[in-house]
Amino acid sequence: MDVAFRIEVETLAEALDQLDYFAVLKLAAAATPAEIRAAYHRESRTYHPDRYAAVDDTPFREQIGRIYRRINEAYTVLRDDARRKKYAGDLAGPDRAGKLRFSEDDEAAVKEAQKKRAVEQLGQTPNGRKFYSAALADAQAGRWEGVERNMKMALAYEPGNERFKELLVQAEKNRPKHDFRIK
């Protein structure tokens, strides 16, 4: 193991708290899931603590340990779509420096959003659910005009439901365009 690598490890271990997860995994912000996995494997080959288990240098092994725990932390967040979305959003925000690590509050926010989404999948009001299920039946049969009509009704009951809005947009895209020509 050369001196250059030792210096690199020491510098990296010191700088960890200034790096975002993309930098930890040496990735571009637009990385695909396959690239994230490949980067994780690549960084593991370099920084896996097992590789240095027989090295007689405790401070060095501690630095490697810190780096590798952060690599795992980064991978845990970036491989998960919901967490990654929230994290990338925070990084782009005004408090970038305070959002380099995914905190317990972020974790809670993601779980809350997932729960909300699960509820929205079904609708929160009886009438919302009724029109939503009618719309789903229409969608299955390919009657996109029916989907549009039903989703507009459903949204009247639940104006904030993201899932409902998505389906309406889809319906508007798919329904036959009005054709004014005389047949």
């Binding site: 193991m1 050369d2 080959r45 896996h48 097992d50 590789r51 240095y52 288990a53 027989a54 090295v55």
Partner: peptide
């Protein structure tokens, strides 16, 4: 875990 040369040469498995 006992391999001393892994540090420079890399390991056979991770």
């Amino acid at each position: 875990l006992m391999n001393r040369s892994a540090a420079s040469a890399g390991q056979a498995s991770y």
